[in-house]
Design a protein around this nucleic acid. Sequence first.
DNA 1: GCTGAAACAAGTAGTGT
DNA 2: ACACTACTTGTTTCAGC
Lengths: 161, 161
Amino acid sequence: MNHFDYVDQQILLQIREDARKPFSQIADDLKISNSLVHQRIKKLKQRGVIAKAEFVVDEKQLGFRTKSYVGIRLREARYAEQVVEGLKKIPEILECNYVSGHYAIFILIFAVDNHHLRKVLYEQVHHIDGVAGTDSFICFDTNFKRPVSLDSLAKKNVYDS
Amino acid sequence: MNHFDYVDQQILLQIREDARKPFSQIADDLKISNSLVHQRIKKLKQRGVIAKAEFVVDEKQLGFRTKSYVGIRLREARYAEQVVEGLKKIPEILECNYVSGHYAIFILIFAVDNHHLRKVLYEQVHHIDGVAGTDSFICFDTNFKRPVSLDSLAKKNVYDS
DNA sequence: GCTGAAACAAGTAGTGT
DNA sequence: ACACTACTTGTTTCAGC
């Protein structure tokens, strides 16, 4: 069994906030050697807990001011796969999920403005064979956005599957 | 006016994929000096295009196997702010947006399993004063997830607001 | 606005406990 | 499993073009 101790948790908390934080500084903070930090991060990577470090880019600053979630209804359920293939070709669509409930597919779109969003939906998404219709949930504001909580992870056995 | 040239675009493409990629290596790739990479990244930070580097953690590996989008209906629109405050206190809720359309608020939840999700909704979200009801869109699978496209950014004037 | 060199700091690997 | 040391590599600054 893989355990997940206090050191792992603290390291995760720190590199999740700042992926470029020097390992030596993390080591100082936690009062451990920097080679231990190195070893633990290596293991976290091996276990698949962390994969890569990304610089977060601000979509708004790049000109994408309209964020919208969109639910997609299909003409028939069996069209799902081919619709996903069609959606993948539209660069404005950043995320695509199969979901339960009223829609078959749920996507996230970033567009320049409402007009651009409308064009993406009407001229591209609606033309994909199998799409019956869409409902848009335009985000006026994102109140908060944060990573998963790591509290209680050091105690719980969350790796047993 | 802030311009955004080929070098900026290439640097962004690289550090977005790997925030720990050595600047000197980026410089080699682009055949420029490493101090230029350093200068450009500094400017991108000043402009707010990039803010911080994050290590991406795999929620599934940490035991959160149920991802769900949830639309929230309010008893009356004026409850919005206090409902957001209530939602903020629930750690399983990772994102919260004001949206147009059928719901007032749209959230993203990561729970351990369906039972956990149900508990979060029934024992916490539904008890927040102002919440009339919720509709869940449980993600069976995430087909793709990617950052915004940077194509054509070097040409377009996207900083003029 | 960009380069190149020099000083400094961090990452990495091997060894020993 | 961890720490220490020596070695390699990257970062940062600044003078000069």
